[in-house]
């Protein structure tokens, strides 16, 4: 079948502002990934079309894009999951500067992630020749948050991010959870202090956009609410 897609194009070396370009892509099938469509265009119709990708199966987080108004991974969405009889609209992730076509500048996204000290902090030395003890139950409490592939779909879908650049955003909050609730970590308060401010966790108004968009189906707001409860009940 033939598919029609409109892609937001922007090449700073040529264009003064972004514009939509329509492509008619012949020979596609409904079990194709959207990434296959992008490749089909790049490899057969227009070599200048620019996007990021690597693993092609939803584990590296490279190819977050906006599809019909929703943030998705191009490699994790099949045509049959889209209304492919109508033109599909593809744009770069919002709320980040465009470098070229679907490639956005993720610097601020990674900065926010680094701010929350995304590494285990311990004071007590671990047992010299053995692992630290952790029950499987406690370990599994971290797994959902550790699943995050830092694709940026959530943070850039969040209305609070749109209205305030400084908002730390759901991905960084999820990472905060990953360490605050790790029974091995000994600096939860340091991290809670970092997110306990108006541009931190309190800018989240539980609007749920983030959950709807997360390609790893992480219940982000549940994790944020755990942090909020922890903050509300912490003793100094």
């Amino acid at each position: 079948m033939e598919l029609s897609v409109k892609i937001l194009r922007y090449n700073p070396e040529k264009d003064s502002k972004p514009y939509f370009q329509e492509y008619k892509v012949p020979g596609v099938a409904e079990d194709w990934r959207l990434l296959d469509v992008l490749h089909e265009i790049k490899w057969k119709l227009d070599g200048t079309l620019t996007f990021r990708r690597s693993c092609a199966h939803g584990v590296c987080g490279s190819d977050g894009i906006r599809v019909n108004g929703k943030n998705r991974l191009a490699c994790s969405i099949l045509l049959k999951d889209l209304n492919y009889k109508k033109t599909i609209i593809i744009e770069p992730l919002p709320a980040m500067p465009i470098i070229k076509d679907l490639v956005v500048d993720m610097t601020s996204f990674f900065q926010k992630y680094e701010v929350i000290k995304p590494y285990l902090i311990t004071k007590t030395p671990p047992p010299p020749d053995a692992e630290r003890f952790q029950s499987n139950e406690d370990a599994e409490k971290l797994f959902e948050s550790a699943k995050c592939i830092l694709c940026g779909c959530c943070t850039t879908s969040c209305p609070s991010t749109w209205t305030n650049d400084n908002y730390i955003g759901p991905a960084a909050l999820l990472k905060t959870y990953r360490f605050v609730f790790d029974t091995r970590d000994e600096a939860p308060d340091e991290r809670l202090d970092i997110i306990d401010n108006p541009d931190g966790i309190w800018r989240c108004h539980t609007i749920f956009n983030c959950i709807e968009t997360c390609p790893k189906e992480i219940n982000i707001t549940w994790h944020i609410s755990q942090l909020k409860t922890r903050l509300a009940t912490r003793e100094f």
Partner: peptide
Amino acid sequence: IIELEHMGMPFSRNEDGKI
């Protein structure tokens, strides 16, 4: 492996809380 655990890698655990 122990070192990775000490660095913070989250492993699945057995009944004794070991990797």
